[in-house]
Nucleic acid binder design. Structure first.
Length: 697
RNA sequence: GGGAGCAUAGCUCAGCUGGUUUAGAGCAUCUGCCUUACAAGCAGAGGGUCCGCGGUUCGAACCCGUGUGCUCCCA
């Protein structure tokens, strides 16, 4: 059984002090004894040495002598090793190589005999010589009684130590030696290590390369025998004399064995009872699913191998990923896949792994009922960068649900326009909003490029965040508001058609993350015969950054004016008059209509001078003057402006400090310096604006 | 015991090659809005000694060293 399945528990035991008679090398009695302490007196029949620490003064005189195991009178050597703890028990250790891991290592080091005294069922076998057939615990009682009766038991004390129990049956685990099959890994690991270190195979995230390297450089041989009923039985066959053959069938094995012993018959040979480790079949998976090993070079394996991307958990890098790479290199002569994407483990809010015994796994179907399948996908994906565990929290599912709702409402809005657009053709003259269309088209192309880059790099949660923000912020909060016609006004047919196309393209981006709602909206927007889930993605298109910059100016202007309105408590319904002192008036031509509508201004004037009795707002290098009928609370305003002024001055100071540093100017890249100069100019302009604003109050 | 990783806002986390207006998102908080798509919403705001210390650099959340705390893996 696996070490993993051994549960160590503090257990109350008895420590028995037993005395072993000592003999000289020539077999004569020394008249002395050595006392050992043990919790498992029934294993003394497996003892093949007594070990003491070489520096232990108490035992120096017995080095090289022999001890006699009580009851069975086996003569065993006294050996010395620093492994022995002098102050535990009596400082003399009985060595039982067949039934203790550490003793086994000592046995190998000193070439000790191995005497296995147990049967598979925990009863004593004939090697024990006494109490043969008795259960180990019954034997313990009887042996203690006999040792006491015959004067070998010197002392008994209470003792607590860790004992291994079976995870499944809670039985005390008895270490035993058994015959197992192993794979020599050193021959396989080299090419597999190189493949990952040379980035022939790419790990995502790459941090797992370190872990992989350490494992591969310190690789140990692989025990592939498993004492289980279910699995592939080990294809090894044994002859009565202990010789063996590994073969695909019993007949083949017999033929092999007959070459050295022609009298062997089929009924003489016996197949190994053990099964192969489950990973021993799993490591064949990338090619044997296409019969790449059993039917080499067939059309399927030629087409599919190497595969693209393995998606798996970091905890099985060693068990599975490394071994698949080794098997691929060994049996196929090449890597099994190009990329490996490691997902995180979903944990509960307290960071615990989800498990049946803790009962902390969420009911996925119930969550899907509650939030929707797309919302559950969204909630998990938005929170899981590659290779990092995620703490499961329903609030991200809620975010997904709200996003679904947002998408439906955007669809509802656009569908409303469908009808009004039809009416529009006759009487009304539609308003033009070309800037909004141009801007969103470029914005869409830019974000598509970014998302594509992220997908190539397996930054999936970042890609989803980017798409989410494109849809919610850019499309819904900005674009739809910009093109939205006035109350019961028609929409320009061209704008409407463009909007349908944009919405479709957004659904195309979203499809891998939220397949259901994106497909549904795709079909509801326009009657279509094709399906989004199998649609070929259109090639990326370039974008015009000057239009994007104009869009940024527009957004900033709107936000700054809304913020100012908020602060001076002018209600959204109260109109204002807007005066703009612009460094470049033409940069406002395309966007002024949208700006006017979005900040509820009744008119826009361009001015070269400061406008008295207004509130000043700085946007980039320009100044916006808000003229309003409302009575203003100048005290709060002044405080706000002073706070902002302070901030800007500190900022300017830090920029100037950098620029006055000669070494910075000498060493930094020109574009970095240019940026710092722009920061300086902007900050100075803003400070001037704020100071004028203060004067204006 | 061996190894790997993590530490950034109240919470959960992004921040790719050191320089992008003295750090970003979601949730939570605060202010104002039941505005004809959406109150599961809209418009704004506040909130950070980027774990401590030392170093490299013109420049550090990011690179190096060290300490502390936590997590995972060990055939």
């Amino acid at each position: 059984m696996s070490d993993e399945e051994v549960i160590r528990k503090e257990t109350q035991q008895k420590l028995y002090h037993l005395q072993y008679k000592l003999e000289n090398a020539d077999g004569s009695d020394t008249g002395e004894h050595v006392i050992i302490a043990t919790v498992r007196p029934e294993t003394i029949m497996g003892d093949t040495a007594v070990c003491v620490h070489p520096n232990d003064e108490r035992y120096k005189h017995i080095h090289g002598k022999f001890a006699i195991v009580p009851l069975i009178n086996r003569r065993i050597p006294i050996i010395t090793d620093e492994y022995v703890t002098m102050d535990f028990g009596t400082g003399a250790l009985k060595v039982t190589p067949a039934h203790d891991m550490n003793d086994n290592q000592l046995g190998q080091k000193y070439g000790l005999e191995v005497v296995d005294i147990f049967n598979d069922d925990g009863t004593l076998n004939s090697a024990a010589e006494i109490y043969v057939g008795l259960d180990r615990f019954d034997a313990r009682k009887k042996i203690v009684a006999q040792l006491a009766a015959e004067g070998y038991l010197v002392k008994t004390e209470d003792y607590t130590s860790e004992v291994g129990y079976s995870e499944r049956t809670d039985a005390v685990v008895e270490p035993r030696l058994s015959l197992q099959w192993w794979v020599d890994m050193k021959k396989l690991s080299g090419p597999a290590l190189d493949a990952v270190m040379n980035e022939e195979i790419n790990f995502h995230p790459a941090k797992f390369k370190n872990l992989y390297r350490h494992w591969m450089e310190n690789i140990k041989d692989w025990c592939i025998s498993r004492q289980l009923w279910w699995g592939h039985r080990i294809p090894a066959y044994y002859a009565p004399d202990g010789s063996f053959a590994v073969a695909a069938s019993k007949d083949d094995a017999l033929k092999q064995l007959q070459s050295s012993n022609s009298s062997l018959q089929s009924h003489d040979i016996r197949q190994d009872d053990d099964c192969l480790d489950t990973w021993f079949s799993s490591w064949l998976w990338p090619f044997e699913v296409f019969k790449g090993l059993s039917d080499p070079g067939n059309a399927e394996v030629n087409y599919y191998y190497p595969t693209n991307t393995l998606v798996t958990a970091p905890e099985i890098i060693f068990f599975w990923v490394a071994r698949m790479i080794m098997a691929g290199k060994k049996f196929m002569g090449g890597k099994p896949f190009n990329d490996v994407y490691f997902t995180g483990i979903v944990r509960d809010k307290q960071g615990r792994k989800m498990s049946k015994s803790l009962g902390n796994s969420p009911d996925l179907l119930a969550l899907i009922d509650q939030y929707g399948a797309d919302a559950v996908r969204f909630g998990i994906m938005i929170a899981s960068p590659a290779g990092n565990d995620i703490l499961f929290d329903e609030s991200s599912l809620e975010q997904g649900r709200n996003f679904n709702n947002k998408l439906w409402n955007a669809l509802k809005l656009i569908k409303m326009w469908e009808a009004r657009q039809a009416e529009a053709a006759t009487n009304h003259k539609p308003q033009t909003t070309n800037f909004a269309i141009d801007w969103f088209e470029n914005r869409l192309n830019l974000v598509k490029t970014e998302v594509n880059e992220m997908m190539v790099q397996f930054r999936l949660s970042e890609a989803l965040k980017t798409i989410y923000s494109l849809i919610w912020d850019d499309f819904c909060s900005w674009y739809l508001e910009w093109i939205k016609p006035g109350f019961e006004q028609p929409i320009d047919a061209a704008v409407y058609q463009k909007t349908l196309v944009y919405f479709e393209e957004l659904m195309e981006l979203l499809q891998p993350f939220m397949p259901f709602i994106s497909e549904e909206i795709y079909h509801l927007l326009q009657d279509r015969k094709d399906d989004l889930c199998v649609k070929q993605v259109a090639p990326l298109q370039s974008f015009d950054s000057s239009i994007l910059e104009a869009g940024e100016l527009l957004k900033q202007g709107i936000s700054a004016l809304r913020d100012a309105r908020n602060k001076i408590q002018v209600k959204p319904k109260d109109p204002i008059k807007l005066h703009i002192q612009a460094t470049a008036e033409e940069s406002y031509r395309a966007i002024e209509n949208i700006l006017l509508k979005q900040v509820n201004a009744e008119s826009i004037f361009y001015t070269a001078e400061t406008v008295p009795n207004t509130i000043v707002v700085a946007v980039e290098k320009d100044k916006f003057f808000i003229e309003t009928e409302r009575q203003l609370d100048t005290a709060t305003l002044q405080a706000e402006l002073l706070k902002d002024l302070e901030h800007q001055k500190k900022f300017l100071e830090s920029v100037l400090k950098k620029l006055s540093n000669e070494r910075f100017v000498q060493n930094a890249k020109p574009e970095v310096i240019a940026l710092e100069r722009k920061k300086q100019a902007d900050a100075e302009a803003r400070i001037k604006t704020i100071e004028e604003g203060l004067k204006n109050l």
